[in-house]
């Protein structure tokens, strides 16, 4: 009788294990596969990719790009999204992770390929510099400020809000000042 009770308890335990998941990981494995999970303790940043200015200047846009595929109806290629901030992450690191994870096209020029000695963002979602006139291209702001530092050199802090904005007027259409 006692044995039966033990067996029943054992079965109940095993069923409980199966229901709660059988993924058993080492600490390193857990760390690696959960590095981008947002928990209460994680430091995070927010990123959005905004091409609304291209909507306002639709006629200046290269005709091949005049499509919802490249400029969504509301102009937002990526709504504000929260990402885990890893130590020493730059704006470029976050942008690269974001675009990869969301499978958004992004092309950049490596720091050794240009005179600025810093990574340079050439195009996002097929929108490139000069795609909508001579003054168009990508800019970015952190917490509403446009730093103009190379994206690869701007190290982020917890809670920073990054906005990538497509400008058609050297920044005047997306900047307040």
């Amino acid at each position: 009788m006692r044995k039966d009770i033990l067996i029943v308890a054992f079965i109940a335990l095993l069923i409980a294990v199966v229901i709660s998941g059988t993924k058993i990981q080492s600490v390193e494995e857990y760390y690696l596969t959960h590095i981008d999970d947002i928990t209460e303790d994680s430091e995070t940043v927010f990123i959005s990719i905004d091409a609304r200015a291209a909507l306002d200047n639709w006629d200046d846009l290269e005709s091949e790009l005049q499509s919802e595929k490249y400029v969504p109806k509301d102009g937002m290629i990526l709504e504000e999204t929260e990402y885990v901030l890893r130590p020493k992450d730059t704006v470029f690191d976050i942008l690269q992770r974001t675009t990869r994870h969301h499978q958004i096209h992004m092309e950049y020029q490596g720091a050794n390929e240009n005179i600025y000695n810093s990574v340079y963002i050439q195009g996002i979602n097929q929108l490139y510099e000069f795609s909508a006139g001579p003054l168009s291209g990508w800019m970015y702001a952190v917490n509403g400020e446009f730093p103009d530092h190379g994206v690869g050199k701007y190290t982020l802090e917890d809670g920073d809000v990054i906005e990538f904005k497509y400008t058609t007027d050297l920044g005047r259409d997306v900047q307040d000042n």
Binding site: L14, V17, V18, G21, T22, K23, I24, Q25, E29, T33
Partner: peptide, 14 residues
Amino acid sequence: NNLTRAKYIAVSII
């Protein structure tokens, strides 16, 4: 790997 292992574990438990 983990998912596969989890599968094996689940199967053996069952």
